[in-house]
Nucleic acid binder design. Structure first.
Length: 158
DNA sequence: GCCAACGTTGGC
DNA sequence: GCCAACGTTGGC
């Protein structure tokens, strides 16, 4: 069982969109970074859980939890010339990009902001999200980091 | 294989 | 809107 963090801009696809999606399920598509692709393609397993993180806003934060319900498979948006994620170098015979499917588990009872995570950085040794300049949209989370962040949910904001 | 130019991400 | 970080591209 692995843990992850998935970033999304709420203007594009936020947790509210996942709420209203059929079966509260979505394809995590459009990832166009090789390191993130490798995680999706090679390391995501059925039943893995991920934090749903809102980026690109005034107060970026972890807002929910999703579960992997389908392991990595080719991202067909790369084959579609009309898609914003189109990549002519990716073909059905030789797909370059992969996606997974995830389902909403639940919202967090309160958002855990990036600012709060930074204040707790000492307890989150080497948390990928806090590494200098980490812009990866798919990040691994250790079991210890996962448990620590979930415990924050029940603690007063600090 | 090096490296400068460029584009994107994402916090602030 | 700005800027730092950093991945990608392409000339050489």
């Amino acid at each position: 069982m692995n843990y992850w963090l998935l970033k999304s801009e709420p203007h594009t696809f936020g947790i509210a969109d996942l709420d209203s999606a059929p079966n509260q399920t979505t394809s995590w598509e459009g990832v166009r970074n090789y390191q993130a692709r490798n995680f999706l393609r090679d390391d995501f397993r059925l039943g893995d859980q991920a934090f749903f993180y809102h980026s690109g806003i005034a107060a970026p934060a972890i807002v929910g939890i999703v579960e992997v319900i389908r392991e990595g498979y080719p991202d067909a948006t790369a084959f579609d010339p009309v898609s914003p994620y189109y990549d002519p170098a990716s073909t059905p015979a030789n797909p370059r990009w992969h996606r997974v499917d995830v389902r909403l588990v639940r919202h967090l009872r309160r958002a855990i902001s990036l600012a709060e995570l930074k204040r707790r950085a000492a307890m989150l040794e080497d948390f990928a999200l806090l590494r200098r300049g980490s812009r990866l949209s798919v990040l691994p989370v250790s079991a210890a980091q996962w448990a620590f962040i979930l415990a924050l949910e029940s603690a007063p904001s600090a």
